[in-house]
C-alpha cells in the first residue's frame, strides 16, 4: 500500500519520453496488449485481419470505448460511476422509441440525461456524498426507467442513426476511424487544454486547485456532464449497431468501462488517466473478450472462465509494470 501512495504523490501529468523505461513501458502497455491480442487473432484467423474483419470485430467496441471515456471523466474526478451501464441501456431505449417516433421529445430527453448527470456531480460535491452510493442508486433508477419505457425488447433505431453507424469510409474501417476520433477529441480536451489540467487537478489534488481559486463545484459538474454526454453517445452508437433496443442491453458496460480505464493506464486515485489509453483499453477488452475466444475453439464449458482469465492476465501485466515503475 505504500507503493500506491507514492504513485499518488507524483505530479498527475507528465510528458513521457525522457523518463525511465518502466514508465515508458507503462504508457505503451495498452498499445502493446492491443497489438498482442491482434497478433493472436491474426494467427488464429487470418480472415479477420481485413477491412471487413475489423469492421465486424470492432464495431461493438465503439459503444464500449465511449462508455469507457465516460467512466474516465468520472474517475478523473476521483469518483466511480456504477450506473453507466444502466444509463447506456436507458439511452438505448429512448433512442429506439422516442428518438424515432417523436424526435423532439427524444432529443430533449437525451439532453435532460446530460443535465441529470451534471446535477449528480453538483449533488455529490455539495453534500460531499460518496459517488459509489449515489451512482449505485442511479443504476436502479436508470434501469427502472428503461424497463418502463421498453417493457419488452423492441423498438427500432432512427434511420439516420442506422445509416451513420454503417458508413464504409475508404481504406480505414469505420470503427477504427471512430476510435481515432474519440481518442483525439478527448486527449486534446483533457490533456492539452488548460481547463483540462484544472479538471484533472480537481481529482488529483482538490485542495490545491481550490486554493488557487478555481471552482471545484464547476469542475465536478463539467466532469459529470462530459460523462453524461459520452454515455449518451455510447447508447446512440450501440442502438445504431444492434438496430433495436432492450432494457438490459448495457448492463455489462459498467464493469467493462472501469476495466477499460484501468487497462488503459488510469488509476483509481483521481487525475491520473489517459484518454488514448482508455480507448485502446476498451478496444483490447472488446477483442480479448469475444473474437479471441471465439477463434480459439475452446470447449463451451471453459469459455466463460477463459474470458475472465484473459482479463486477469492483461490487468496483471499492467500491475507488474506499475510495480517496477515504483521500485525504480
Amino acid at each position: 500500500m505504500t507503493a500506491k501512495s507514492s504513485v499518488a504523490a507524483r505530479p498527475a501529468f507528465m510528458p513521457f519520453g525522457k523518463t525511465d523505461s518502466p514508465r515508458l513501458l507503462r504508457a505503451l502497455l495498452p498499445a502493446l496488449s492491443l497489438a498482442l491480442v491482434l497478433l493472436a487473432i491474426a494467427w488464429l484467423n487470418q480472415r479477420a485481419i481485413s477491412y471487413f474483419g475489423f469492421t465486424l470485430m470492432l464495431n461493438l467496441a465503439i459503444p464500449i470505448a465511449l462508455a469507457t471515456v465516460a467512466q474516465m471523466f468520472i474517475i478523473t474526478g476521483n469518483d466511480l460511476d456504477l450506473s453507466i451501464g444502466a444509463f447506456v441501456g436507458f439511452v438505448g431505449c429512448v433512442t429506439a422509441t422516442w428518438l424515432r417516433d417523436t424526435p423532439i421529445l427524444g432529443i430533449l430527453t437525451l439532453l435532460g440525461c446530460v443535465g441529470v448527470y451534471a446535477a449528480l456531480g453538483a449533488l455529490i460535491h455539495w453534500r460531499n456524498l460518496p459517488s459509489i452510493v449515489v451512482t449505485l442508486g442511479m443504476n436502479f433508477v436508470w434501469q427502472g426507467l428503461a424497463v418502463l419505457l421498453l417493457p419488452k425488447p423492441g423498438g427500432r433505431a432512427p434511420d439516420w442513426l442506422l445509416a451513420s453507424m454503417s458508413v464504409k469510409p475508404p481504406l480505414v474501417p469505420f470503427p477504427v476511424l471512430a476510435a481515432l476520433i474519440i481518442a483525439a477529441v478527448t486527449y486534446f480536451g483533457l490533456m492539452r487544454t488548460s481547463y483540462g489540467a484544472i479538471l484533472r487537478g480537481s481529482g488529483g489534488n482538490a485542495t490545491a486547485i481550490g486554493r488557487a481559486g478555481w471552482s471545484l463545484l464547476k469542475a465536478k459538474i463539467v466532469l459529470y456532464a462530459c460523462a453524461g454526454l459520452f454515455g449518451v453517445l455510447s447508447g446512440l452508437s450501440l442502438i445504431g449497431i444492434t438496430t433495436s433496443g432492450d432494457a438490459n442491453i448495457g448492463n455489462g458496460y459498467t464493469l467493462l468501462s472501469i476495466a477499460g480505464v484501468i487497462l488503459g493506464g488510469g488509476e483509481f486515485v483521481g487525475g491520473r488517466v489517459s484518454p488514448i489509453g482508455a480507448v485502446i483499453g476498451a478496444l483490447t477488452l472488446a477483442l480479448a473478450a469475444s473474437p479471441l475466444l471465439t477463434f480459439m475453439h475452446l470447449p463451451p464449458d471453459w469459455q466463460v472462465a477463459a474470458n475472465g482469465a484473459i482479463l486477469i492476465v492483461v490487468l496483471a501485466a499492467r500491475a507488474l509494470i506499475s510495480r517496477r515503475e515504483v521500485e525504480q
Partner: peptide, 24 residues
C-alpha cells in the same frame, strides 16, 4: 462447434455472431 457467451448480455452475443461470420 458450440460457443457460449461469458455473460447473458446482448452486445456480447452480437459480437459473438460477428466473429462467427468472420470464422467462415
Amino acid at each position: 462447434d458450440v460457443f457460449t457467451t461469458a455473460d447473458k448480455e446482448v452486445p456480447t452475443q452480437a459480437a459473438q455472431i460477428q466473429n462467427l461470420i468472420l470464422q467462415g
